[in-house]
Design a protein around this nucleic acid. Structure first.
Ligand SMILES: [Zn+2]
Ligand SMILES: [Zn+2]
Ligand SMILES: [Zn+2]
Ligand SMILES: [Zn+2]
Lengths: 133, 133
DNA sequence: GACATTACGTAATAACATTACGTTCGATTG
DNA sequence: CAATCGAACGTAATGTTATTACGTAATGTC
């Protein structure tokens, strides 16, 4: 396996920024947080994000145009179908994989001769904590 | 019924533009196509799109930042869970609703005390026609 | 008619993402 | 070792998507 893929400095900085964040961050927010580390341009962030997402260390949330560090149990880099539950109030993101959902979507694809490259499942709403509050 | 909701001129223009399109359009593409009809600013498009999506006549594709006229059988305006299969090659979008997927996601929400407001399911890939070609 | 609501027009700006071009760094290999 | 190749980087400019702000006009209700 390509287990110990060493990240570059920029990639590590972006990854750590996301891990320390308490929710998804936009590329420009990451940029701002890394000014002191020498980041000057969006492309520095986007390039690192591209690499990190391809490694499965970071996920892009399409409905938010933002990025979050992987917090799931799933194997990185695999073509696993992951769903995200995003709290609109506190920003917390939960990752989960549902085999039945996965299977049903694959079945639809099979029935319709559709070849799926990437599937996005994002649930926007309010988490348990915020509902109680 | 939902049928008789009279759309305004701007809303109708945007809706017709999307219906005549052979795939998803960005707000700015719609704007360009409606220049001759007097559209001058993005907000004219976005306001119409907001209304049309709230009526269920148009869907926003989050992973594309684009909009498509509803082509499904589902009832407009309901909180139904719809999945989109988007061909990266030809741009065709298929809508479908899978009760099992819906049920499983609802079950997850129930188990986690999460209140879902809006759920996005988008499959990017290649459609049957484009695979054959 | 007074009032609330919804939609509209316009301008400016904010937020998100990519293209282009040249350089630097590290690994491979002859 | 140095030639070479590919990944990553720096910087600037530009392109794309979406919103804020402010005022006006049309429409429905009482
Ligand atoms: Zn993950
Ligand atoms: Zn919350
Ligand atoms: Zn639809
Ligand atoms: Zn196709």
């Amino acid at each position: 396996m390509t287990e110990a893929t060493a990240l570059t400095r920029n990639q590590s900085l972006v990854h750590n920024t996301l891990r320390q964040a308490d929710g998804p961050l936009s590329a420009y927010t990451i940029l701002d947080r890394l000014r002191d580390d020498g980041f000057r341009a969006p492309l520095q962030v986007y390039r690192a994000l591209d690499k990190l997402t391809s490694l499965g260390l970071v996920h892009r949330l399409e409905s938010l145009n933002a990025f979050v560090a992987c917090a799931g149990e799933h194997r990185h880099g695999e073509n696993e179908l992951i769903a995200f539950a995003i709290c609109e109030r506190c920003g917390q993101v939960e990752e989960f994989a549902d085999p039945v959902v996965c299977e049903r979507l694959e079945a639809w694809a099979g029935d319709n001769a559709f070849h799926a490259d990437k599937t996005t499942i994002e649930i926007r709403g309010k988490c348990a904590v915020c509902r109680a509050a």
